[in-house]
Amino acid sequence: MSDEKKVSSKNMLEKIMTVIKVESRFLSEAIMDSSGTRIFKQEIEEAKANLKLAKSALTSEMANELQSSRRVKILTQKASQQESLIVDALAQNNEKLAFNLATALVDLEQDRDAQLVIQRTHDLHLGHLKRQMELAERSLKDLERQLAMVNTTDRIQKATEVITKRFDTADAKMLSAKKTLDRIRKQQQQRDEQYLIEDNLLESGEDKSDIKVEKGSATDVLKRLVDKD
């Protein structure tokens, strides 16, 4: 139990190295089956669920923030309209109306300030949720990267089995690099020699036989026609 605990606190690369040391180099199945990997998969599921929650909390908080900032805007507009009404009333020496309007303005401003406080709270909360979401994204990416190490190890080992099986039956030499290199060198040498021969032919003019146009004489033409008769 304590061993299992020790294993699960290691990162995936450390786990892979432990298994290489202790078991064998064909380790993928051992790791894939280990409780550590199961815990990893479980953690990934949890991280995904957390992320989903964080996202839905974030969207609802964004809606709240939008709503309260809209309210603040409306109340600010109303207050400034009220101010100009008061200025008008004062200009008409209607002090009673101005006083009533001013009383209503006090209420409006109180409402606006209260809304501002709410908006700021939503802002702060929104920032907090964004950070939480980023942290959830980060831990999910990290868990997936670690799991990818085992999956890649497994994949490559299986691919190697598939490939070597094929070449063991077909052409074992295909996978021997030195033999391949010899083959490559021979092919290159042959090609170089071929080029050399072609170049020499071009230079010496010997290849003209391929494209030589013989110029016959008039006598030849007459002879040919006479023979034809």
Partner: peptide, 14 residues
């Protein structure tokens, strides 16, 4: 060969 995150190209040496 391809995994979830990577395309891996391999040559077997020796």
């Amino acid at each position: 060969t391809k995994t979830k995150f990577q395309i891996i190209c391999i040559i077997y040496l020796w």
